[in-house]
Computed example of a mutant assay.
Amino acid sequence: MGNTGTGAGVSGDQERTRRKNGPLRVDAQRNLRHVLSAARDVFGEQGYGAPMEEVARRARVGVGTVYRRFPNKEALVRYIAAEETERLTARAREALAVEDEPWRALEGFVQRSAAAGAGRLLPPELLSATAAAEPEGSAAVRVPQQRGAGTHELLSAVGKLVERTRAAGELRSDVTVADLMLVIATTPPRLEDAGRQSAAETRLLAILLQGLRANGR
């Protein structure tokens, strides 16, 4: 999985950025951690359309500090998206390791991923790519060869979850990888009250998961 502190387990783009910029001083490492943490929070709340200035403000650094590590917003978005893809892939593989309860494994994967805000941090093209690859009503698991191995590995792992749960008779026959990714990415409107927000998210996810189950059980 990705590591916001050191960049361990980074993607190809992340590794090239690290090599280009060279080793970081202690203060620069601290600033980078703050920037990455802030970027996850800001993009998770506002989407990838949020400005770099908001990331810098939340990280309590100057916007120039952000641009010294990431030459443009696209580079920062790619970094965060690749990191989230790695996290979600690891989570899907953990679910696959639970062999005796397919539905509980799939349900837990979706719940943990949605709670972590993964749907708002994955590569922006992911949902449209999976939807295009899986026509409505298709029972087959089709994994497109996306840009970058990380995305392909994620869709492959999620595809195995879908296939296994369907084979156990616990998932509707028409549910696809794209459907699962859409459920993870779906959130209710933002509410000012944190308690109401959490309750709304939990309720919406429960309804969506029930809709995925065979016979709506």
Rank of each mutant, 00 (worst) to 15 (best):
A97E: 14
E83Y: 09
A149K: 14
A149H: 09
S138P: 02
E136Q: 13
L106A: 00
A95Q: 10
E125Y: 11
P124A: 10
A115P: 01
R69C: 05
R112V: 07
F70N: 01
V63T: 15
L106D: 00
A97N: 11
Y67H: 12
L122I: 09
E153W: 07
R104L: 11
E86S: 15
P71N: 07
A105M: 07
R58S: 12
N72K: 12
E101W: 03
E101M: 06
V98Q: 14
V61S: 02
R120W: 03
P135T: 10
E136F: 13
P102H: 12
E136Y: 14
E74T: 14
E125I: 07
A116K: 05
R60T: 11
A82M: 03
A132I: 07
V141G: 09
P123C: 03
A92R: 13
E84P: 06
A95S: 14
L76K: 03
H152W: 12
R104T: 11
A81H: 10
L121W: 02
E99A: 14
V143M: 01
A114C: 05
R57D: 13
A133C: 07
G148V: 06
E83H: 12
E125R: 11
L88Y: 02
Q146L: 15
A118F: 04
Y67A: 07
L127Y: 08
H152T: 15
N72C: 06
V143N: 04
A129T: 13
V98F: 08
Y67E: 01
P124L: 02
E84G: 05
R120C: 02
P124V: 13
A105W: 05
G62M: 00
F109M: 08
G148K: 10
P135R: 04
G62L: 01
E84F: 03
A149W: 11
R91P: 00
A139G: 15
V98K: 11
E125C: 00
P71Y: 03
R112N: 11
F70Y: 14
L96N: 09
R120G: 05
A115S: 07
G119P: 06
A116N: 01
A132T: 05
N72V: 03
Q146I: 10
L88F: 06
L126R: 01
A95L: 08
E134T: 13
Q145A: 15
A132C: 00
R120F: 01
E125N: 06
S113P: 02
A139W: 08
E83L: 10
R93C: 12
D100E: 15
A149Y: 06
A116G: 04
G137Y: 13
Q111F: 00
V141H: 00
